[in-house]
Design a binder for these strands. Structure first.
Length: 457
RNA sequence: UCCCCGAUAGCUCAGUCGGUAGAGCGGCUGACUGUUAAUCAGUAGGUCCGAAGUUCGAGUCUUCGUCGGGGAGCCA
């Protein structure tokens, strides 16, 4: 491995452990910030994305994870052996270059680097992902390398922004982050298939939701959110499913359904606003139609009841939709298409909703639940509800759903000791990202997706 | 669990009626001082997913299997 020839240090004993953030006296600058250093000689460190050579001239497209810059190597501007070394670089070879930042319209990106020094760190073996077309199966087998490509990297940066916006949103509204366990003794809702693990000889499951623990935490801290991975062993094989995905689940004491809906629209519009403010360049890399996203950064979001949603379906090509059933993918698409931003659908038939949802006091057939449906066919982003806070009613629900009562005793305790109205929702991180970035498949929105029969790399 | 589609060079694919295995890109060699997924010339590269069958002859037809892609249901 090549070492920098000189390092500014008066303590040489530490030098081999020291930073590599300078070279030849020049400070490292990330490509994203090069435009602020026009005229300066700086160090750029990264990987070779592509190269074009023209005689005594090499055009190196260098990427460093923050952007791509063209580094121009003229024979004569660098020692001959460095020029020859540049000519032998292969795609994804790692390198450090020192050069002067120049504004140049001929260069992709507006600025380029006139290279005065080139240090080849590692010459890569022939790289499997070429700058040409590849199939999804091939790219998924090489996910660990695919992450280096422009679009996957843009999605990961947006994911980072969304995660930070989520934590900041709740921090500013004084919701405390409370982590729920990954191992659980039983199903939360008892419906979907869970991953079973051996827990010192006992059966345990990987969590499918942190909500019930979130309710307990909200009784302790008032306003909380759970943010972590979630596991579903459903044999779902579609672009809208992962077996491991991230979910954020706020829960708040003294919140009713309307408070939950207020929080939900505030939350999603804030996240979209953060991405529009910070990651516009990445949305452009992804060729996202920003005009279709911008309304979602504005409150309020439309709110309709389940009954009104069914009316939309009946008027809009789904005349045979039976009242009382849950919406399938095409139904959600049809409802979402009616609005320019996500729509909140509330007051659902209780029969198709989870046991923990509170019933409408005026109509026991209605559950005080809400789904947020994205525009453009991305489906359900949020599912939430006001929770059942009455002990007797919740005991009745558990019996109706034939759930193992003993597993829920602790949950029932929350209704025995100072029960209060409360509510919350869950938001699927990857589904939200797929909608924001406009990508078609959830697997592109998580670094290393876990899917049915797919766990490599 | 069910339905549909596919598997040929490193990658993306073509391969006619069953008759000698093809292209583009990538790799390698060389040329070029402004390339924009550079261009030009040359060159190497094949267990046609596996097994069995039909046939004088199978990448091509039949059966079974494996792997992959898409969708339904279920869900976020």
């Amino acid at each position: 491995m090549a070492q920098p020839p000189e390092r500014a240090s008066s303590r040489p004993a530490r030098s081999r452990f020291m930073t590599q953030q300078s070279f030849g006296g020049h400070r490292a600058v990330t490509i994203r910030h090069l435009t602020a250093h026009v005229g300066e000689e700086v160090l750029v460190q990264g990987w070779l994305y592509n190269m074009r050579s023209k005689g005594k001239l090499h055009f190196l497209q260098v990427r460093d994870g923050t952007g791509i810059v063209q580094a121009v190597v003229f024979r004569g501007n660098v020692p001959d052996e460095e020029f020859e070394a540049a000519g032998r670089l292969t795609q994804e070879s790692s390198l450090r270059v020192v050069g002067t930042v120049k504004a140049d319209e001929r260069s992709p990106g507006g600025v380029e680097l006139q290279v005065s020094k080139l240090d080849v760190v590692h010459v890569a073996e022939p790289y499997p992902i070429t700058p040409k077309e590849h199939g999804v199966g091939f790219l998924m087998q090489h996910r660990h390398l695919w992450l280096r490509s422009r679009k996957p990297a843009a999605i990961l940066r947006i994911r980072d922004t969304v995660i930070r916006a989520i934590r900041e949103f709740f921090h500013r509204r004084e919701f405390a982050c409370v982590d729920s366990p990954m191992f659980t003794p039983s199903a939360c809702e008892g419906t979907t298939t869970l991953f079973k693990v051996d827990y010192f000889g006992d059966e345990a499951y990987l969590t499918q939701s942190g909500q019930l623990y979130g309710e307990a935490s909200a009784m302790a801290l008032g306003k909380i959110y759970v943010f972590g991975p979630t596991f579903r062993a459903e044999k779902s094989k579609t672009r809208r499913h992962l077996t491991e995905f991230w979910m954020v689940e706020p829960e708040a004491a003294f919140y009713d359904l309307e408070d939950v809906m207020d929080l939900g629209e505030d939350f999603v519009s804030t996240i979209v606003g953060a991405v529009l403010a910070e990651r516009r360049d990445d949305l452009e890399i992804l060729e996202r139609d920003i005009a279709k996203l911008e309304p979602a950064a504005q409150k309020p979001y439309p709110r309709i009841t389940y009954d009104q949603a069914v009316e939309i379906l009946h008027a809009d090509g789904h005349a045979d939709f039976p009242y009382g059933e849950d919406f399938g993918a095409p139904h959600e698409t049809a409802i979402g298409a009616r609005f320019d931003r996500p729509v909140l659908v509330y007051n659902w038939p209780a029969a198709i909703k989870a046991f923990y949802m509170k019933r409408d006091p005026d109509n026991p057939a209605i559950a005080l639940g809400v789904d947020m449906i994205a525009s453009e066919g991305y489906g359900e982003l949020v599912g939430g509800a006001q929770r059942e806070d009455d002990l007797a009613a919740l005991e009745e629900r558990i019996a109706e759903h034939q759930l193992p009562r003993e597993a829920f005793e602790w949950f029932l305790d929350l209704r025995r000791f100072g029960s209060v109205p409360h509510g919350g929702f869950g938001l699927g991180l990857e589904r939200t990202l797929a909608w924001i970035t406009g990508v078609e498949h959830l697997r592109q929105c998580i670094p290393f997706p876990r899917m049915l029969d797919k766990i490599y790399p």
